[in-house]
Amino acid sequence: MGEESAQNEIPMIEVKGLTKRFKKRTAVEDLNFTVGRGKVVGFLGPNGAGKTSTMRMLSCYMPATSGTARVGGYNVYTNPDEVRRKIGYMPENNPLHVDMRVREYLKFRARLKGMRVQDSRRRVDYVTDVCGLGDVQRKLIGHLSKGYRQRVGLADALVHEPELMILDEPTIGLDPHQIRTVRKLIKELGKTYTVLVSSHILSEIEMTCDEVIIIHQGRIIEAESVEGLHAKMSSERQVIAEIAAPREELMDYLEHTGEIEHFDVQPADGEFLNCALTPRAGFDLRPQVFQIAREKGWQLRELTRTRHSLEDIFMRVTRRDEEDGF
């Protein structure tokens, strides 16, 4: 019991000062983060930010230039075999042997990862079931659709009972329906395993993850729980309202409302006016706008808060960095 709790105290991933330099460029610089057990953590950043490099270092595919990374307490450089046994890694674009059948491939991978024949059979049955591959297990991987291939990749990452799953852009190149299925699967897996999943799509991370690490130009610029990030971002979110109202009356109201810091009114089609309202920090303007429209009998046909895209977050966070610098 004591041993078990000691085991649970060791974070799943512990990265200190991790740096990777290639000949001409630095992929990541001085990364520091910790991932607790049982968490689903999103690794968010634009293409070329250093997500894949970090994941490759964690999965012992290539060593770091400096710094250390530990997975389940094992150093990735000095104990690569132990680390590899703990990790189920699915690389970007999910490379598979297209000339093998699904079941044959999964068995091959299980054996390669050191499982016994009986264990591998049991595990292959299990992952086939979990990933919904029952119908295609006798098919050639080359003949499968991209969505199914992605599931085969996930099944492969899962087959040797890893403690940590590292998934590099698991939904890239899928159609919306397949993306949904894969996301659902990741969410499902997150209940049992620690998952580190990379993506350049903010909404995807929001939907699947508990925590998010934002990486930009090889550096971590934000490491936060998804709710925390939401709270931070929502305080400045604009409200868009389309109202059919006399222009002067509306302008007068907007000018004299203290919670509105800035507004922009553009004519839309018909009698409607499109208003983009920026609130003072922390305010949600929607109830107020609805209230005034009801009181004055104005027609209201749209009332939304803009969602922050990944670009917005980058713009904001990098801008803040610059401001801090001055």
């Binding site: 490759r56 999965s59 012992c60 595919y61 690569p80 075999d81 590899r84 046994r85 990790i87 890694y89 690389p91 674009n93 490379p95 598979l96 042997h97 297209v98 991978r109 390669l112 990862k113 050191g114 492969d156």
Partner: peptide
């Protein structure tokens, strides 16, 4: 070329 090298080299095989 196909990328399976990466999946191969991240298994506990020397």
């Amino acid at each position: 070329f196909s990328g399976t090298y990466e999946t191969l080299m991240t298994t506990p095989v020397s």
